[in-house]
């Protein structure tokens, strides 16, 4: 009886161990699988309705309900203190026509509202999305005052995770020391489009 019990425990342990391994692998894979960057504008797109003044610009696209973008916005809040008037910051919220404005005013909107010297946009007609072509929520564009793309990518190290990342460190180093950042990096967040929606948007 004792032998059978020991055997049962060993089998259970094996199943447990395997299950955890598979589960964690799936989770970690998901967490660390970046989203698509989309087409990259290497210069500031003139068709953008955002006015480009004689100052570097940081633009971030956010899906109002993407949980991963909460980390992106929190990381942005850590970048801003290093700003010192060097860049204009714009946060553009995705707004499909299917939903009213209340849909945009999520907790992420409330977080973004607290950022000082930051402009919030609701891209109701998807004009800016069509202009910049981001595909993933949390995607950041950094343009120099000469309208040259300095960086495109995310500012988190994995989905929904705050902490040190290539993008955040690069931007901060550029702000503090003027060090040129790597031009692109990973972005982690929800897709701004479901399948087929991008094509419909482009045709519109």
């Amino acid at each position: 009886m004792l032998y059978k019990k020991d055997f049962f425990i060993k089998v259970l342990f094996s199943v447990w161990f395997f299950g955890i391994g598979v589960g964690l692998y799936q989770l970690w894979s998901y967490m660390n699988t970046p989203g698509e960057l989309g087409e990259i504008p290497y210069f500031w797109p003139e068709s953008s309705q955002i006015e480009f003044q004689d100052k570097a610009k940081l633009v971030i696209f956010v899906h109002p309900h993407c949980p991963c973008s909460r980390a992106s916005l929190n990381e942005l809040s850590r970048i801003l203190p290093h700003n010192q008037e060097k860049i204009d910051v714009h946060i553009i919220f995705y707004h499909p026509s299917k939903f009213d404005l209340n849909w945009v005013h999520s907790d992420l909107w409330e977080i973004a509202k607290t950022f000082p010297k930051t402009t919030l946009h609701i891209d109701s007609k998807s004009h800016e999305i069509k202009t910049f072509s981001p595909k993933t929520s949390g995607q950041v564009y950094l343009f120099s005052r000469d309208k040259e793309l300095l960086y495109v990518g995310g500012i988190t190290n994995s989905r929904g995770h705050e902490g040190t990342s290539i993008g955040k460190d690069a931007i901060i180093n550029w702000l503090k020391e003027g060090k040129k950042p790597p031009q692109k990096s990973f972005v982690f967040g929800c897709s701004l489009f479901h399948s087929g929606e991008k094509e419909i948007l482009e045709k519109s």
Partner: peptide, 19 residues
Amino acid sequence: ISPKTWSGQMSEVHLHLWS
């Protein structure tokens, strides 16, 4: 924190919740 994941206008249960 993360009940749903989104793809544009569509949402589904977030992997976090299943996990």
